[in-house]
Amino acid sequence: MWVLERSPFLDGKLKRLNKNHPAETKAMLENLDKYLKALNEGANPINIQAGWIHHEPDGIKALDQKGTKGKPAQTRLYIFPAESSRQLHVITAGDKSSQRTDIQESRDYIKPLKERKHGKTV
């Protein structure tokens, strides 16, 4: 079974996003639930594809707010499925304005995880 693990800086980001875009945040978390379900059903992360899943560098995925009614803001929840440990890392969340920083932050966060997997000392 896959488990969710959050980065130390996720709480603040998600709380802020929920304050400004509650419907979008809810939709992203629903999509996270879908993604987790697919992993638990035995789907390979490579095969988990849909319009609301955006593939970022280093295996990072960005889940968007699809499912929100009306004209939603563009928001993203950044995740990383670590296959060897079956941990789904929920790294950060943000809107279009913070996209660049969010991706960089996510890449920095998973770097030691990837190095550990390849046997390098951190």
Binding site: M1, V3, L4, E5, R6, L29, E30, L32, D33, L36, Q87, V90
Partner: peptide, 9 residues
């Protein structure tokens, strides 16, 4: 801490 469900999370 690890979570098994999004609700708990």
């Amino acid at each position: 801490k690890q979570y098994k469900s999004v609700t708990e999370f």
